[in-house]
Amino acid sequence: MFKKIIEAEIIENKKIAEGIYRMAVKAPETAADARAGQFVNIYLRNKIMLLPRPISISRVYDDVITLIYKIAGKGTGELSAYLPGEPVRISTSLGNGFQLEDVFKETDSNHNLNKVKIIALVGGGMGVAPLVGLAQKIMNEKEKRSFKDDDLQVIAIVGFQDEPILMKEFETCCNHVYIATESGSTGLKGNVLQLIERKGLKPDYCFACGPRPMLKALANRCENANIPLQVSLEERMGCGYGACVGCVCRIKAKEEGVKSIRKKVCTDGPVFFGNEVVWDD
């Protein structure tokens, strides 16, 4: 099947916090194979703005996907004015999502997880958006395997400047939600790393999405504690499908004689293992 640009129908486009919107679009072809951590390109109506806006898929319900976006400029400003019932041009799902199967690969003879009892979803700012979908996926997986909370717990560790978003969604899919805000308006005053420290949280597996300094600090912590970590990286994109090689990150090379290579965030990622990323590039 070819990847496509499709015309989707906007179901909802609602402000959920200051400058932050949730758009729900009916897009069966995108929803069909969407994985948590993938993204879509949105193609704007104003043709002066050529490049698509890559937005991560937050949740998938049947043939509807939800996208959380922040108004960062004219392009996302245009998006915020779209009305329910109107069409929007989007791509089918792009990039590689979180590899949930990595958590479930090591099970004992009773199909219980050997090592992973607590999964942490660590999000900063807009980075929480794809983690909601992942939380939902893990919950479904637990049900499928008849896991109880004693077998596997999912905790959300989320940080914001001031106003938390998607809290209800996390609360319905996670065993615990820990919050930090820079302003101190909700939860701990500080960042997610301080939150992990302060609460003495000891996850066995982490998935993370958020600002690069947060991801770097978390990767460092996970590496020292020998905790597997998958991170979703962000980079300024051109085409969003791998043709322009605009969005790259440095990844430790597996080949001999080469230290590291630049990989494409859009098609090789956006999800990488924390310990394969060269953070100081």
């Binding site: 703005m49 050529l50 980079e235 300024r236 051109g238 322009c244 090689v245 605009g246 969005c247 790259v248």
Partner: peptide, 9 residues
């Protein structure tokens, strides 16, 4: 290649 950002609209 060059470091990022590599693209500007």
């Amino acid at each position: 290649g060059n470091p990022t950002p590599r693209i500007a609209e």
